[in-house]
Design a protein around this nucleic acid. Structure first.
Lengths: 216, 216
DNA sequence: GTAATAGTGTCTTTCAGACAGTATTCA
DNA sequence: TGAATACTGTCTGAAAGACACTATTAC
């Protein structure tokens, strides 16, 4: 049997890069002829989707070295005026301090506060869902903080991701087993120095952590 | 800007249809020249992925009317000897009683007990993950039982999906608010007649239900 | 009656969440 | 010393999970 004789779609990738700035989730955007949009590109021959996503991010936003997760294929035949284009939405996360000078749009309870081109606002909503799921399962799985961080920094990150204040003592008990303490401390806060922690690889958070993060 | 001048991949869909038979999750398979595989097809021009999935299932397995969820795009350039073929894996669920005469393969803790063609075994593993996530969020969201069902039937279904015995009283308290009782009962079990329930649309299960289903 | 299954009241243990206490730094 | 922040012991209320009891059918 020969390969499909049907016309083939163009396949693209778009990437929602999420970061936290000013205690708020934000998404990286680029300016294009179609307006403010997510970084994206067409898939090259023989290329894998995640490699196309990395190439788009490197070329259009100067960002490298991130992990990508698929969040959904957008396949409305009329989603792009230029023709039949399927696009795989991806999500990645990065520490704000590692970001070059790029456009950022804050997210209000998971949705962009301004409209993005194409169906990119829907992509961002799915990206936030996926990020929240992964942050419910593990402690800081995507390096949105630096190499080491205090529990206060971690809690502020989770409060931004889940758009919700979290009690510090319960939060600590939920995440502490997913972390390893370095012996070091930092006194950047002004008061008693806080211990610095790293993520414990492959450690799962307790099943009840999701209930705390997502609220009642 | 003209549309991409790059060569385009063929795009296909494959569907993991899950059902429960003999207290075990099973997946629908078809025989092809490549061996035992998931039902699939190439995407037609202008067609949406979910419509291609429905067409594949209707044509190759005689199954209609299901809901499909994307679980991931498989994009290894060498995954199909015939050429460059991307395939979107889908998941759907169906009551065993609604199945026509098709091939079924039982799943051992989420994985097929025999190898499937291509990367279809990986697709099934992702499909089971997705099914478990959706059954953790809502009570019986995919109609794997009939229109109405008893709590015993529902619990047996969840035990098969999560491959784990569940205590009947705690299970009841977790799911009861996601159901609506019909006034009717059935005495098919032999003992005291059991009330028949339906799914309450849009009702979310408590956050702690996932902890019960997935276990320690 | 017995057997079988459905459904529920209750007890205990556990833990989320709140509160307040102690600990350690800087000014 | 006081202010600020980090961390932790303890209390309470709620609920998971276990257990047993009652309820309703068939035989």
């Amino acid at each position: 049997m020969a390969l499909s004789d049907f016309p083939r779609p163009s396949v693209a990738v778009d990437v929602a890069v999420l970061t936290v700035c000013d205690d708020t989730l934000q998404v990286v955007t680029v300016e294009s002829q179609f307006g403010t949009a997510l970084p994206g590109t067409f898939l090259h021959e023989g290329e894998r989707l995640r490699d196309a996503a990395a190439r788009a991010l490197s070329t259009k936003a100067g960002i490298d070295g991130l992990d990508f997760h698929q969040v959904g294929m957008f396949d409305d035949p009329r989603r792009d005026d230029r023709g039949w284009v399927l696009s795989m939405a991806h999500v990645a996360a990065i520490a704000y301090e590692s970001l070059p000078d790029v456009g950022l749009i804050p997210l209000e309870s998971g949705f962009p506060t301004v409209g993005l081109a194409f169906d990119h606002s829907q992509m961002v909503a799915l990206a936030v869902d996926d990020l929240r799921r992964r942050y419910s399962d593990q402690a800081e799985p995507s390096s949105m903080l630096g190499e080491a961080f205090t529990l206060l920094e971690l809690r502020r990150l989770y409060e931004a991701i889940f758009d919700r204040e979290l009690p510090k003592d319960t939060f600590r008990r939920q995440v502490i087993d997913g972390l390893v303490g370095t012996g070091e401390t930092t006194s950047a806060g002004g008061g008693r120095p806080a211990e610095l922690y790293r993520r414990k690889p492959d450690a799962q958070l307790p099943r009840t952590a999701a209930a705390l993060f997502r609220g009642p």
